[in-house]
């Protein structure tokens, strides 16, 4: 049973709400990524446009190339890996023209990210508040005192229950869900326009995952943040995204508005992702909802 490798791309369907007028903050055009060490191409052409306040989801299993695609957009591909074809534009700037200094200026202020394991992105021996304040001082030039006040506001904005206490705590004193909130606070500290959440809720309990997803939706609505949500779980993406890309072995096997992909999947792999929920998950107990 070899799945067809044809790509099913749909155009926006009539009746789907879209904002074609807004200029994309992130534009990924037919990006190919190659591992120079082995000479193998790992990602075979990914394209999407992301406009402010919108969310693109990338679904695929580990090794499908979804994380590499994100890292390419952040300019942090691992050694040996290289974008060998296509282009990426962040707020209208082609990233191949960026010097290391320009990249540094762009990260956190324009594009930012959170990953699966929040603890490994924090210094274990520095209080979390100081780590967020550092981002603020370096990236936005706030004074120490201003940075401290703003840190409290940020910790409040990510719905941490006791921001004053959390600010002076060390990473090991916080739960996984709290750490991920701290990381999100740091990621949005310098007011980026794009936030990439790569399996950001995968390691969390279901109830905590929902809190983090709610928080991301909330930030998007309040600040017009554009989100890239990467997950192995189609349902996580379905909950948050407007458009979805299904990636398999580095290939986009399906792409389109979430609703039409869910209701009319064209590729066997997408059908499998759906069946997993409908036959083995909670959907099994619920009548399929008709969408308006």
């Amino acid at each position: 049973m070899t799945p067809p490798t044809t790509q099913h791309t749909r155009s926006e369907q009539p009746g789907t709400a879209t904002e074609p007028t807004a200029a994309p903050v992130l534009s990924v055009r037919d990006v190919h990524i190659t591992d120079r060490a082995s000479g193998r191409e790992i990602v075979h052409g990914v394209s999407f446009d992301l406009t402010p306040g919108r969310t693109v989801g990338i679904v695929g299993e580990s090794g499908s190339g979804k994380t590499l695609t994100c890292r390419a957009a952040l300019g942090i591909l691992p050694p040996h890996f290289e974008v060998t074809a296509g282009s990426i534009e962040i707020a209208g700037t082609d990233i191949t023209t960026l010097t290391p200094a320009r990249w540094t200026a762009l990260r956190a202020t324009t594009i930012s990210a959170v990953f699966q394991d929040p603890a490994s992105y924090l210094n274990p021996s520095i209080r979390v508040g100081a780590q967020i304040a550092e981002v603020l001082r370096v990236k936005t030039g706030l004074t120490r005192r201003e940075a401290r006040d703003r840190t409290l506001e940020l910790l409040r904005a990510v719905h941490l229950r006791d921001p004053e206490l959390v600010r002076v705590q060390y990473p090991h004193e916080l739960s996984g869900g709290m750490l991920q909130r701290v990381l999100i606070a740091a990621a949005i500290a310098a007011g980026p326009r794009i936030l990439i959440a790569d399996e950001a809720t995968t390691a969390l309990d279901v109830t905590v995952q929902a809190e983090i997803l709610d928080l991301l939706a909330d930030l998007r609505e309040r600040t017009g943040l554009a989100l890239v949500v990467v997950s192995h779980d189609l349902a996580v993406v379905a909950q948050l995204c407007d458009e979805v890309l299904v990636l398999r072995h580095g290939e986009v096997v399906e792409q389109g508005p979430v609703r039409s992909v869910l209701h009319d999947p064209r590729h066997d792999y997408t059908r499998l992702l759906i069946a997993e929920h409908e036959q083995y998950g909670l959907e099994r107990f619920r009548p399929a909802k008709e969408h308006a």
């Binding site: 929902a210 349902a235 909950q239 959907e283 619920r286």
Partner: peptide
């Protein structure tokens, strides 16, 4: 349990589980 949860925690658990066709509970 799935169609008629009683305890608030069970309800939160079900309301938090991402599903394909919209979450059963809203924010």
């Amino acid at each position: 349990i799935v169609t008629n949860p009683q305890h608030p925690y069970t309800r939160l658990l079900l309301g938090s589980a991402p599903t394909l066709h919209g979450a059963p509970a809203d924010r």
